[in-house]
Amino acid sequence: MTGWLFLAPLLLVNLLVIVGPSIATVYYSLTDWTGTGSAKFIGLSNYRRAFDDPDLRQAVVHNVIWFVLFLTIPTIVGLLAAHLLSSIRRFQMFFRTVFFIPYITASVINAFIWTSLLNPTNGIGVALSHIGIPFFKNTSFFGQPNLALPSVNFVVDWHWWGFLAVIYLAAMQNVDPALYDAAKVDGAGKWQLFRHITMPGIYPTLVFMFLMTIIWSLKVFDYVYIITRGGPGGASQVISTLMYDDIFSKFEAGYAAAIGLSMSFVVAIVLAGYFYLRKRGSEL
């Protein structure tokens, strides 16, 4: 009973800020609510519409591309950086701090820095062309439909890999050094140490970050909204920016609620899979 009393304030807050809006979202997803005024019940129409919505389909594809890029690039760079950092003693804290700075910098600042650097009129491309490297001279990274999404993703990867490096470094430092010593005695090389000692040692951390990456990939919003707002012509539109647009530009909050709930459903499936595997005794 005492435990419940201690928990009560937190549960009450949770009820108010999570359960209440969640119930409201379920209700509004079944209505034609514009975001203001009253709402009319329309059953599952919003969900049926979502299946036929080409903009939503395109946004889902963009989220999948985003997930693949966001999972692979920062993870590989982060692992590499963590591995290199783990082998040095001097300046380790300095590099950890430097790698971490982009992560703690406000997204709007990072976005401004990169839109300036990649400005096709006076950014890096033009500067490089002045010194005889014309490769990026006429490239509009955020303005060309085929480059907009990967370019925004690059900015996010850039701010993210340092965070992963620090997380993976912490995990690597928890691997028993005796395992490395034993493997070395058996003649293991650097790659074998990494492949057979380090990777299994940080496996739970890797899987957890994988899980979080799926969730964050579905939720991605700020950088896309700040840099391209989903453009040009929807080329970098993701689910969350589409929802924002539906609510505040098209006055279709009911439809946006249906999309949001569908997203939550996907996240719930991922979480359920994770917890199922953990329950089955997997080392996650």
């Binding site: 400005n119 096709p120 009129t121 303005g143 453009g231 040009p232």
Partner: peptide
């Protein structure tokens, strides 16, 4: 200058130009 620049060059740069 191009469609891509229309979607990527910030207002301040355009005004400067």
């Amino acid at each position: 200058g191009s469609t891509a620049k229309y979607y990527s060059v910030p207002q301040a740069t355009v005004s400067t130009q």
